[in-house]
């Protein structure tokens, strides 16, 4: 079925468009370019290109900037002290922030549902790493709660991807985004709540504790990546 589908879509498109057949979706527009890796064909559209530039910018900021040093003032006196971040922690957090940025860019470019879920899980685990590096009981408690959420979030993600494959026979977004293929609501819901758990974008309940952690801009990478990947999954779910 998918072969016929690809063929029919390609036939209706100009030949110069692409070999995979795309896909004028409602919110993202025509694919700008495609990057094939075997069965997985990554692509960027005007919408995802904007997200990609955002992710790239913040990764570069994480790469070149020095961490902030929080200042605590002592109540009732002139004394103040700056929190020192050890070299080891700094290097580790910077590595994790860059890995997180790369994972975000991968997730934004993903042209395959399962590949997208893997990149999302990758973002989840780098986020845990960034937060867990801070040596503070409250923040570690939070990192643990987040980690649990990221771990159980893999269930909706993978079950969602498996359902997409089971009901349509393909994982490629190039085919899933065509109007001929219908993805059940259940699979879409699973993907969205999976990303919520991994990316943690709308779950701001426990964020207060984490923003208190020293180590910006690396800590900020947690927020940026989760926001961008959430925007991306909404786009995928609407287009499917």
């Amino acid at each position: 079925m998918y072969e016929a589908m690809t063929a029919s879509v390609t036939a209706s498109m100009p030949v110069s468009e692409s070999a995979y057949g795309f896909t004028q979706t409602d919110i993202e527009g025509q694919a700008l370019f495609s990057l094939p890796f075997g069965d997985i064909v990554n692509f960027l559209t005007p919408y995802t290109a904007v997200l990609f530039v955002f992710a790239l910018t913040f990764t570069i900021i994480a790469l070149i900037s020095k961490p902030e040093r929080q200042v605590d003032t002592v109540m009732g006196g002139d004394a103040y002290y700056t929190k020192d971040i050890s070299r080891e922690t700094l290097r580790f957090q910077r590595f994790m922030a860059i890995a997180c940025g790369l994972a975000t860019m991968g997730g934004i470019m993903a042209g395959d549902v399962f590949n997208f879920t893997l990149f999302t899980a990758f973002i989840g685990i780098t986020n845990i790493g960034i937060v867990a590096a801070v040596k503070n009981k409250h923040i570690l408690d939070n990192a643990f709660e987040y980690g649990l959420l990221a771990m159980i979030g893999t269930l909706p993600l993978f079950v969602g991807a498996a359902l997409v494959l089971a009901t349509t026979g393909t994982l490629s977004m190039w085919i899933l985004f065509t109007p001929e293929v219908a993805v059940p609501l259940f699979a879409k819901l699973l993907l969205v709540i999976g990303v919520i758990a991994e990316g943690m974008a709308p779950v701001f309940v426990a964020k207060a504790e984490i923003t208190r952690a020293p180590g910006a801009p690396y800590i900020l990478m947690v927020h940026v990546s989760s926001l961008l990947i959430f925007l991306r999954v909404i786009e995928i779910v609407i287009s499917m």
Binding site: I125, A132, D141, A143, F144, G147, M151, A161, A162, L165
Partner: peptide, 28 residues
């Protein structure tokens, strides 16, 4: 066969996260 190939990444993600989380639990 594709499902069998997809199980492997799924399994690895689980093991990896469990390793990191156990260490966080110990530190915490």
């Amino acid at each position: 066969d594709l499902a069998e190939a997809l199980i492997l990444p799924g399994l690895v993600v689980g093991v990896a996260e469990l390793t990191a989380m156990s260490q966080i639990y110990i530190v915490k």
